[in-house]
Design a protein around this nucleic acid. Structure first.
Length: 518
DNA sequence: CGTATTTGACCCGCGC
DNA sequence: GCGCGGGTCAAATACG
C-alpha cells in the first residue's frame, strides 16, 4: 500500500507542478482527500491491529509459543492472507484470545471493505476527472476551430510560450498551421514529459490534463486564441486595442541590472546581428537559440538608454527542444508573463490602467508592495510577478518584467535574482553573467539536490499550499480549510507519508535534473 | 580549421 | 511611392 501511495503521490505531485485551474483544483482536491482517506484507513487499521496485538502480548507468555510471533508482518494484513492465517499456526490461543482475534478479523474485514469502497470511489472520481478534461478539450478544440474560421487564413496563431512547447513556425514554413508537435513528441517523449514538469510555473487558465503525454493540449495552452467576443463589452480600450492588433509574435522583455553583455538564462545563443535602434545610443544585439538548429526562439538585448546598468532582454518565440533546468525556469517565467499577456488581452478582470497614448498602450501591474498580482487576478492564485508592463508598441504585444526596482527580484551587485512562486516550488532563476563567479552556480545546482532550481521544501509541500489556495471566503470552505489543514498536518507529520513524499520528490528531481542539459 | 562574432547590405512592414 | 526603422542575412573577420 505504501508503494501504491508513493506512486499516486508522485503522480499528484506532478499534477501540482502544472498549474491547474480552479475547477481542476477542486477535482484534484477531492482526489487528494480520497487518497488521504485511503491512506488514513490503512494507518488506522494498522495501528488498531498493532494495538490489539500489543494488548495480547502479555497473554502470549501464558501460552506455548513455538516461534516468535511475526508481528511486523501485520502491516501486510491487507494482502490476501489474514492475520490469523499468519499467526494461528504458531500460537496456541485460549478461547478469549480467539474471540478477540475473531473481532480483529471482523474489523479487518470491515476495514478492507471500506478501503475497497473508498478505492472504488477514488477510481470513479478519477474517471470523472479524466472525462472532465476530455470534455473540456473537445469544447476548446471546437471553439478553436470556430475562431480559426473567423480569423481566416491570414491570421496565424501565435504561440506566446517561451517554454518547452514545440513551435511549428519557421521562417520557411509560411503561414500554414502545421501541427508538427507530434514529430517532436516522437523524437523525445521522455524529454517532453520531463520538461512539462518545468512548465508547471505557468498560470494559464486552461486546465491541466491528467495525461502528461498529451502534448496537444499543452500546445493549445500556449497558443494565443482569438479574443472572445462575449467579453468585449466589459473590456477597457486597452484590451480592445490589443484585440484589434494583428496577431504578431508576442514578446516578453526582462529588465535586469546586469554588468555583462548579456545575462545567462540557461540557453545557448548565437549573435546574428546588431543594430543601433532609434532613440537609444546603445546598440541592440540580436541572438538566436543554438540549442537546436531549428529553434525559432530569438532574443535581442539592449541596454536601457536612461540607465546603462539595466539590461533589457526581449524574448520571442517558443523553444522546440529540451531545455536545461535553468533555461526551463526562465522559459516558465516568460511563459507565465506571456500567459499574463494573453489573459490581459482576453479578459477584463484585471482592472488595468492604460497609461500610454495613441498606438502604444501600456499596462502596469503593481504586483509587489501590497497590490499583488494575486489580489487583482484571483484566477491565478499562484504567482507574484515583478513589476510588469504590457505594451502593444509596434504591433508586437510585449510584456515587460521589470526586475530592477524590486530588491526581491534583483541584487545590486549581481544579476542574480530569485522568483518565488507562492505554490508548488521555489523557482530560482540564475541570471548570472558568464564571466562572473556565479557562472558555476547553475552547474552546481544540478549536482546539489538542495539547491536545484525546482526544489521542494518539506515545510512547504505542494499539497499544503494547494490546499491553502483552495480555501475561499465561504464558511463551508473555511471549515474545509480547517479540516484540510488538520489533514495536511496529519499527513505531513506521518513518517510514511514523508518517506513517500521524499521518494516522490526525489523522483521528480531526478526527472527534472536527468533531462537537463547544460 | 572550425566556430563565433562583426558589420554592411538587404528585406519588409508601416506611416506619410 | 518613398523614406524610415526594425530585423535578418551572409561575407569577412576574430578567436581558440
Amino acid at each position: 500500500m505504501h508503494i501504491r501511495l508513493y506512486e499516486k503521490d508522485n503522480c499528484f505531485s506532478k499534477f501540482f507542478l502544472v498549474k491547474p485551474s480552479w475547477r481542476s483544483q477542486t477535482l484534484l482536491y477531492r482526489l487528494y482527500i480520497l487518497l488521504f482517506i485511503c491512506y488514513k484507513y490503512v494507518i488506522m487499521s494498522s495501528s488498531s491491529m498493532e494495538a490489539s496485538l500489543n494488548m495480547e502480548k502479555p497473554m502470549f507468555s501464558f501460552f506455548e509459543v513455538k516461534d516468535e510471533p511475526k508481528i511486523k508482518n501485520i502491516n501486510h494484513f491487507h494482502d490476501d492472507h489474514t492475520l490469523a492465517s499468519k499467526t494461528s499456526p504458531q500460537i496456541v490461543l485460549d478461547s478469549s484470545a480467539k474471540g478477540e482475534m475473531g473481532q480483529v478479523r471482523e474489523e479487518n474485514q470491515k476495514l478492507k471493505h471500506k478501503l475497497s469502497v473508498v478505492l472504488n470511489d477514488y477510481k470513479s472520481l478519477q474517471m470523472h476527472f479524466n472525462d472532465y478534461f476530455q470534455q473540456e478539450e473537445v469544447t476548446k478544440s471546437s471553439e478553436k476551430q470556430a475562431h480559426d474560421q473567423e480569423a481566416g487564413d491570414g491570421n496565424e496563431l501565435v504561440s506566446l510560450s517561451l517554454g518547452t512547447v514545440s513551435s511549428c513556425k519557421h521562417k520557411s514554413d509560411g503561414p500554414k498551421k502545421v501541427n508538427c508537435f507530434s514529430k517532436s513528441k516522437q523524437d523525445s517523449d521522455e524529454d517532453d514529459q520531463e520538461l512539462k514538469l518545468g512548465l508547471g510555473c505557468e498560470f494559464d487558465s486552461t486546465p491541466t490534463r491528467v495525461d502528461l503525454n498529451n502534448v496537444k493540449n499543452d500546445e493549445r495552452t500556449h497558443t494565443v486564441e482569438p479574443p472572445v467576443h462575449g467579453l468585449k463589452t466589459e473590456r477597457s480600450d486597452d484590451n480592445e486595442l490589443l484585440d484589434q492588433l494583428p496577431l504578431k509574435k508576442a514578446r516578453v522583455s526582462v529588465k535586469v541590472v546586469c554588468d555583462t553583455q548579456t545575462m545567462n538564462d540557461g540557453c545557448q545563443w548565437r549573435k546574428y546581428g546588431q543594430k543601433i535602434a532609434k532613440g537609444n545610443p546603445c546598440p541592440r544585439a540580436y541572438y538566436r537559440c543554438t540549442l537546436s538548429p531549428s529553434c525559432p526562439v530569438r532574443k535581442h538585448v539592449q541596454r536601457c538608454a536612461e540607465n546603462r546598468s539595466v539590461l533589457i532582454t526581449t524574448y520571442e518565440g517558443t523553444h522546440n527542444h529540451p531545455l536545461s533546468v535553468s533555461a526551463t525556469a526562465m522559459a516558465s517565467t516568460t511563459s507565465a508573463a506571456a500567459s499574463m499577456l494573453k489573459s490581459t488581452s482576453s479578459t477584463s478582470q484585471l482592472g488595468l490602467t492604460t497609461t500610454a497614448p495613441s498606438t502604444t498602450s501600456t499596462t502596469t501591474f503593481a504586483s509587489h508592495h501590497g497590490m499583488g498580482y494575486n489580489s487583482i487576478a484571483p484566477q491565478y492564485p499562484f504567482y507574484h510577478l515583478p513589476k510588469t508592463t504590457i505594451s502593444t508598441n509596434q504591433s508586437h504585444p510585449t510584456i515587460t518584467l521589470d526586475l530592477t526596482s524590486n530588491p526581491h527580484f534583483s541584487r545590486s551587485n549581481s544579476s542574480t535574482f530569485t522568483m518565488t512562486p507562492r505554490y508548488s516550488s521555489s523557482t530560482c532563476l540564475n541570471f548570472s553573467s558568464p564571466s562572473s563567479t556565479l557562472s558555476s552556480s547553475i552547474e552546481s545546482n544540478y549536482k546539489n539536490i538542495n539547491t536545484i532550481p525546482f526544489s521542494y521544501h518539506a515545510k512547504q509541500t505542494p499539497s499544503h499550499d494547494i490546499f491553502k489556495n483552495m480555501t475561499s471566503s465561504t464558511s463551508q470552505q473555511q471549515h474545509s480549510a480547517d479540516t484540510i489543514a488538520a489533514a495536511t498536518k496529519a499527513l505531513t507529520s506521518n513518517p510514511s507519508f514523508r518517506s513517500a513524499l521524499a521518494a516522490s520528490m526525489a523522483s521528480l528531481v531526478r526527472n527534472v535534473g536527468g533531462g537537463s542539459k547544460i
